[in-house]
Design a binder for these strands. Structure first.
Length: 921
RNA sequence: AGGCGCGUAGCUCAGUGGUAGAGCAUCACCUUGACAUGGUGGUGGUCGCUGGUUCGAUCCCAGCCGCGCCUACCA
């Protein structure tokens, strides 16, 4: 074995082996366990969020697979309507073309071609991460059978009246030229202005003042509203106003929507361009005057002067005209939320169009009940509040998109514009008695990507066919997701799963935090703080990293700042850490927190852990390979052997608990600590004196060798879900030594706490041994005695147990404490001038002659005395409090009394010692 | 405006109604025969602030300060 762990050499080889051996497919005899991967965008590349999430899913999947469950991690990808279409359009733009130059059919063909080229990227990256997805079942949301599921759901919902088509205001993206759902709107506070405009009375007797942030919309005004309770304006209701810049007259109406406290108390009502105004317009039967075309240029309903102008150009000219007419009362600075499209970044317009909607309320009611009844459990549980909050206020879902890439809406129109919904054009003709010669044209729109995503838990398993897979794997066991898509995806899967499968799509939803950079910033290309997870795995030099971060920016002017920050943060680029170290880091970072600040230093620490494990295995191999490991023959276990076996049982319990509670951080920590601090730091060292002593019996040799191999083999299995590669590599070497066999660690059983016996006696015995060693080390460390310096240690005041333990463990003590010899003081023998450590009643003495400076030892003891006195005072304070003694549970009081005794003894001994030092000076 | 969350060592984070922990960083010593990606021993915290409940609060409750996220928004 090499001296250092080198991940690069093994990762690719092992993954290929696993996949070709078909280890990822369901095979366990136990109950089904299923996770549906949140399908990544087909043309996407792996980012830190994916890597984190997929590590968690893989860890769960591997742990369950090892535990004998019939385990499926469903693979697949999403067609990502808008995102993919934008990418392909950008490619076309680079060629100087638009999608309209190609036409729909050719454009869609081009998108498929791009899917074919780029669609493999992310699955290759997932393989690098060690993700044990069942690739043989990989699905794509636009596969024929998944598309059929989409159509089926659409048609059935339509038949039940839960999908309808209607003309109403939607959030319109004038750049992408499509409607988007409420969820795709991001409203950010932006600095703007509030224009206070004068609307003159028809009779010229004055004016009212209205305020607006979008003055150009006045061309679509249908009224001005005042509050019915507003004394100032009550008399004006019904009067007519002359709408500026037009020749139209609009009425003053009374509506509670107008807030008397805001501005003048008068509000302009533009039913076709504002969601609130739309409602007011409906109440008052106002005309909806649409003044914009789809690209947000003013249309034929605007006065000729402004017609054809972009909304913002028109605004400037109109403001100038208003100013010239003396109709601007004042202008004030005003910050307000501006709605932008989450993909395009364009300012959205409320726009009057025909769209398809899902009537959500009935679906939401069942979905709320499912969570309330505990049929779905959120982890951490608090997320159900967020879920309820949204579900109880949910509005109808606009599902049509004016795009070309996606599932075409299964609706056809005849010449008269009558709409027919059906599974196919033939089905439509058949069920409506339409002859073949009746012209039908299909709806041009496609469905929101999230519509097909919502079906993912059952469409991937063959629905609407009643398949064996559906029977086995639906509902899936757990959904692993970020809170950012609870509304987009989780809620909709629950609604449609309940509707079409009659059961929840998953039993639990594990909601993890979002990966951010060290500063807590969201990682994004434009911020230039993105880290490619595979660059952590393979390493990347600084120049390549700078280049990666600064090319292809939407705003190239940011490049210098990004370059500077990158050079500062990673002066030497990023070292290679290997997949396992990255995965372990993700597991360790998987706390319940919402934000996960990614810290590269931590990966370094866990890379070291990999190396530690590697070298532990190297040692175990060295001392056991070719030796008798007790697989046959008599075996005798030492106290140390029993101790580490007992500790291993605890570690297995901790790991199991961590996995069961989705506390991967705690599982990772428990395994890290057991492996490093107990197995490596102590047990491997304890094994050396045993294995090297000529006095050790053959049975005891077998016992220790067997324990080394068995505990290490168990550690490997415990760690495998988090660190699949190194554990597999080492397991193939270690398993035979531990008497285990099998083709792969992947299918070896996950360890149980009951695999090793708990042994309280051995634990207490070894506690004594370790405390002894620590006591001597502490003196050595604090007294600056060179590690190479051997000295004799005396013990005083040793009890019977101390003497027994001293006798049986002398070998460890001398070796691990690096001392020449240990001997109890004879009866009546005077202790030489010594530095001391305490172990219960017993004193450990390190004679000072030639080793220790009196002043230094006095200082050291003084420090300890101070600490002990402070603790003692606290304990005394508590015990002096009558109420404490009266109310605290007896075991707490007993514990407190015990502490008093301990500290008092320690203090007394320290003081004796100090006095001794003073006398001998 | 409503909802949710956070504030613990220099940094990133665990944690518990009764001795405050880890990783990284830091200091000292050490090329000991698994590992310098290592070993040994240290340094470092009035657990955001103020009250309350309690025998006892970093933990529970209330208020405040600071920070963040989500939802809905006054034109």
């Amino acid at each position: 074995m090499d001296k250092a762990y080198s991940p690069r050499d093994i990762e690719g080889r092992l993954y290929t082996h696993w996949e070709s051996a078909d280890y990822f497919s369901p095979r366990g005899l136990g109950a089904a366990f299923c996770i549906m991967i949140p399908p990544p965008n087909v043309t996407g590349t792996l980012h830190m969020g994916h890597a984190f999430q997929d590590t968690i899913m893989d860890a769960l999947t591997r742990q369950m697979r090892m535990s004998g469950r019939n385990t499926l991690w469903q693979a697949g990808m999403d067609h990502a309507g808008i995102a993919t279409q934008m990418v392909v359009e950008r490619q076309l733009n680079a060629e100087g073309k638009t999608r309209h130059d190609l036409g729909r059919e050719a454009f869609v063909a081009r998108a498929w071609k791009w899917k074919g080229e780029s669609g493999g990227t992310i699955s290759r990256q997932l393989r690098r991460l060690g993700a044990s997805l069942d690739w043989s079942r990989e699905r794509f949301t636009m596969d024929p059978d998944l598309s059929a599921a989409v159509t089926e759901v659409f048609v059935r919902l339509h038949e039940e009246g839960l999908i309808y088509r209607g003309k109403r205001l939607v959030n319109w993206d004038p750049v992408l030229l499509t409607a988007v759902s409420d969820l795709e709107v991001v409203a950010e506070e932006e600095a703007g202005q509030l224009w206070h405009l004068r609307y003159p009375f028809e009779d010229g007797s004055g004016f009212v003042i209205v305020a607006t942030t979008r003055p150009e919309t006045l061309l679509g005004d249908a009224a001005v509203a005042v509050n019915p309770d507003d004394e100032r304006y009550r008399k004006l209701v019904g009067k007519k106003l002359r709408l500026p810049l037009t020749d139209r007259l609009i009425p003053i109406i009374a509506d509670a929507y107008a807030d008397p406290a805001f501005g003048s108390g008068c509000v302009k009502i533009t039913p076709a361009h504002d969601f609130n105004d739309y409602e007011v317009g409906e109440r008052h039967g106002l005309e909806k005057i649409n003044i914009l075309d789809p690209s947000a240029h003013l249309n034929e309903n605007a006065p000729a002067k402004y017609r054809g102008l972009d909304r913002f150009a028109a605004r400037e000219i109109m403001l100038a005209d208003l100013a010239a007419a003396g109709l601007i009362e004042r202008i004030e600075a005003h910050t307000h939320a501006v709605p932008r499209g989450d993909r395009s970044g364009a300012i959205l317009e409320p726009y009057l169009t025909d769209q398809w909607y899902v009537k959500v309320a009935p679906l939401a009611a069942a979905a709320i009940t499912a969570v309330e009844a505990g049929r779905i459990r959120f982890v951490p549980e608090n997320w159900n509040k967020t879920y309820y909050e949204w579900m109880r206020n949910i509005k109808d879902w606009c599902i049509s998109r004016q795009l070309w890439w996606g599932h075409r809406i299964p609706a056809w129109y005849d010449a008269a514009g009558k709409v027919y919904v059906g599974r196919s054009i033939d089905a439509v003709r058949a069920s409506n008695g339409l002859a073949a010669n009746v012209a039908l044209t299909q709806d041009d729109d496609v469905l929101d990507t999230w519509f097909s995503s919502a079906l993912w838990p059952f469409s991937t398993l063959g629905w609407p066919k009643k398949t064996a897979d559906l029977a086995t794997f639906y509902p899936s066991s757990v959904l692993v997701t970020g809170f950012d898509i609870i509304f987009f995806w989780v809620a909709r899967m629950i609604m449609l799963g309940l509707k079409f499968m009659g059961d929840v799509p998953f039993r639990e939803v594990y909601v993890h935090g979002l990966v951010r950079d060290t500063e807590g910033q969201k990682m994004s290309k434009s911020k230039g703080n993105v880290i490619d997870p595979l660059d952590i795995v393979d390493g990347i030099d600084l120049e390549s990293l700078v280049k990666k971060r600064t090319t292809g920016l939407m705003q190239p002017q940011l490049a210098p700042a990004i370059e500077k920050a990158t050079r500062k943060e990673f002066p030497r680029g990023i070292e290679a850490h290997g997949t396992d170290a990255l995965r372990f880091t993700f597991a360790a970072l998987a706390t319940q927190s919402r934000d996960i600040r990614f810290d590269l230093a931590r990966v370094g620490g866990y890379r070291n852990f990999c190396n530690k494990l590697w070298n532990a295995a190297r040692y175990v191999t060295l001392v056991t390979d070719g030796q008798d490991c007790g697989l046959r023959g008599e075996v005798e276990l030492s106290a140390a052997d029993c101790w580490i076996r007992s500790r291993c049982s605890f570690a297995a319990a901790e790991a199991a608990r961590g996995f069961a509670d989705y506390r991967f951080d705690l599982a990772a920590q428990a395994l890290y600590e057991f492996t490093w601090y107990e197995f490596c730091d102590w047990y491997l060292e304890l094994s050396k004196p045993i294995l090297q002593s000529p006095a050790t019996s053959a049975a005891a040799l077998r016992g220790t060798r067997q324990t080394l191999a068995q505990v290490l083999e168990t550690i490997l299995r415990l760690l495998h879900p988090i660190m699949p590669f190194i554990t597999e590599e080492l397991w193939t070497r270690i398993a035979p030594l531990a008497g285990k066999s099998g083709p792969t660690i992947m299918l070896a059983p996950y360890p149980l706490a009951s695999d090793f016996p708990r042994d309280a006696a051995a634990e207490s015995e070894m506690r004594w041994v370790m405390d002894f060693i620590l006591g001597v080390r502490q003196i050595r460390g604090e007294m600056d005695i060179a590690p190479s310096k051997r000295f004799d240690v005396l013990v005083a005041n040793a009890g019977e147990r101390d003497l027994t333990l001293l006798k049986s463990h002398g070998g460890y003590l001398e070796r691990l404490a690096q001392v020449a010899g240990i001997r109890p003081l004879a009866a009546g023998e005077a202790a030489p001038q010594s530095a001391t450590a305490l172990l219960g009643e017993m004193k450990i003495l390190v004679p000072m002659a030639g080793l220790i400076d009196v002043a230094a030892e006095r200082e050291r003891l003084g420090k300890r005395a101070t600490r002990a006195r402070a603790e003692l005072a606290k304990c005394h304070g508590k015990l002096a409090n009558e109420k404490f003694v009266a109310n605290a549970p007896p075991e707490v009081i007993a514990q407190e009394r015990g502490r008093v005794a301990d500290f008092e003894r320690e203090l007394a001994q320290i003081e004796t010692q100090l006095k001794l030092l003073a006398e001998l000076r």
